[in-house]
Design a protein around this nucleic acid. Structure first.
Lengths: 353, 353
DNA sequence: GTGAAAGCGCTAACAG
DNA sequence: CTGTTAGCGCTTTCAC
């Protein structure tokens, strides 16, 4: 249990200078003979270059940070798995943090990452643009996943709400479209997903459709309003704060205050879970009494009875893509990516009656 | 977007030496006047000490590593949340890795952590004692959570299987019990949990009870065998490899090969999920045709219909405790901890018919 | 109480 | 091609 071998040990043992060792190990030039000897000695000494030394020297930590709202939410679990898969294949470490969808905790975590000199970050942002300013100021490369930070309070910026479209409309002339978000991002095509869901519901005859949203679902509500068209009944759009309790309360409240609604689209799997629970508690049968569509496909959606009809978004892929983006962001600011969603019809929606 | 202020900048701006700055910032002695000035300047410069510099100097990285099999498995999500909660309150970074329950990937991740000089690790081990030897040799402080590494191949070591008891039997004289595991650990009381479940099932009249296990469930099977007593029907004990597909195949195979079984206990939530799916596919009604008890309580267990009867283990607490252990392991090798499980009776078990 | 100086392990000039 | 050298930012003796 002695201290690990350092580059110096290897150099001495191999009878060469430390620079040579460094070169050999990082694929630099060296005569075949030296290279072989160094490699042999290194292996023999079980030498592993210390990331600490390298990072200090290069004034930056390798790897990346990952900030998600809650690992207990299966969707973020999938997202994280994607990120980790990519990081692993790149041999890069990932420093993770869970924000609880709280901007304050998020800020603290950003601070912590800064302290660690982690300068690449993938985040499902909880705070608004203001929360994220410090990260940008510090020169961090950040890729947002799943959603974008809301514009700073006071700034009338429709960008966040509109971006869902933009990225898909590659046909538009560059000048015709608003500037892209400042940070590259990997988002699901919420707008199309929600629109498809609402149309599907309308096709089944539903007219009083509610939206059950959570933190970060603003693009989804916006899409919902748009899809429903004209003056949407504001009582049918309710928000929870992120905790399961809050989600349940919101769902239950919705069902009780508006017994006339015939369908609800839940903005995320935690909300969907809450809706199922609340409906059951209130003796509402799905889909007989109320139809339900949930955003996010998660393994247990199929276990419900009836199995839940969902808007699937590729969580794992999103994570993987985000990691790729943040890793090879050397080539300047990458464009954002929007991944398609898919309406998976199972059994939780029925005709309006 | 200039480079961050260093300790040197602060020292100069405050007209003191770097050593003084260092002292002040780490609570060392300094005259009130100097201290104040340094603090002011530091704040003004938005100075954040670089963890890189400190770590290199101290030849160790702060924070901890966390290795779990799969973040898509809600139980590990809970565990991770616990770890992160503790780490956050300690201001420590967490480097995470997902092993996919594959010893090889686990080894690689351990190597990566070693390279990062992360010397504290919380792990749900995939590999056996041999896989973990390098970590120990390198002087890592590791706390195992949820399970222990199997004894190295060839070593006839009943410790892992027996430990479930040990820790609870504080009444035994120290000499009478086998030595404790080499690394501190945080485990659920699998033995009691399984025993309770089996007894419950027997009380309902079930005799042909099957066990559906996955990687790392050896303590649970052992407990199952013990609870069932005497020669257990080996065909009723089946194992999957960790993937959802494999779990489904195992469950489906089990149901088909042994239509006479009347109850199954699933060793983890992924297995439980598979069992529900397989049963439905084969038109087996739960609990009419087959009773089901699942290890792990997860939010969606309640959503199934009928809601699943489960053996709950405190995932979040386990993570939190593990993090505490690994953090304050300064005081030598901490004892392991065993947390209680609870049988939560919902609707997936019925009388044998 | 405070400053100067010596590195921690590594890479990147810069000479040979 | 290869060795020497100068730090990266910080903590920690060791003098003053």
């Amino acid at each position: 249990m002695e201290r690990r071998a350092t580059i110096k040990d290897v150099a001495e043992a191999a009878g060469v200078g430390v620079a040579t060792v460094s070169r050999v190990l990082s694929g630099g030039s060296a005569s075949p003979r030296t290279r072989e000897r160094v490699l042999a000695v290194a292996a023999q000494l079980d030498y592993r270059p210390s990331a600490l030394g390298r990072n200090l020297r290069q004034r930056r930590t390798g790897g990346m940070g990952l900030l998600v709202p809650d690992l207990t939410d299966t969707f973020y679990g999938q997202l994280a798995e994607g990120v980790l898969a990519c990081a692993r294949s790149a041999g890069e470490p990932v420093v993770i943090g869970s924000t609880g969808d709280d901007p304050e905790q998020e800020s603290e975590l950003i601070g912590m990452l800064l302290e660690q000199s982690v300068d690449r970050l993938i985040a499902v942002p909880a705070g608004d643009a203001e929360t994220w300013a410090p990260a940008a100021r510090a020169g961090m490369t950040v890729v947002f996943a799943d959603r974008l930070p809301a514009p700073a309070a006071g700034e009338e910026d429709p960008r966040a709400a509109a971006v869902g479209d933009l990225m898909l409309l590659d046909g538009l002339s560059p000048a015709a479209r608003p500037r892209p978000p400042e940070a590259p991002s990997v988002l699901a095509d919420d707008r199309a997903g929600i629109r498809t869901a609402v149309r599907y519901l309308r096709g089944l005859g539903h007219r009083r459709i509610a939206f059950l949203g959570g933190p970060g679902h603003d693009r989804r509500v916006a899409a919902f309003r748009e899809a429903v068209g004209a003056p949407v009944d504001e009582e049918l759009v309710v928000f929870a704060t992120g905790s399961r309790d809050s989600a349940y309360a919101a769902a239950s409240g919705l069902f009780q205050s508006r017994p006339d609604l015939s369908a609800v689209v839940a903005g995320g799997n935690v909300l969907g879970e809450a809706a199922v629970l609340a409906a059951r508690e209130l003796d509402l049968r799905v889909p007989r009494d109320v139809s339900l569509i949930m955003y996010d496909d998660v393994p247990w959606a199929e276990l419900c009875s009836p199995p839940l009809t969902v808007i699937a978004q590729p969580g794992r892929d999103m994570g993987y893509r985000a990691a790729e983006l943040v890793l090879r962001s050397g080539g300047r600011r990458a464009r954002g990516v929007v991944l398609p969603t898919e309406l998976i019809i199972r059994g939780s929606c029925g005709p309006h009656r």
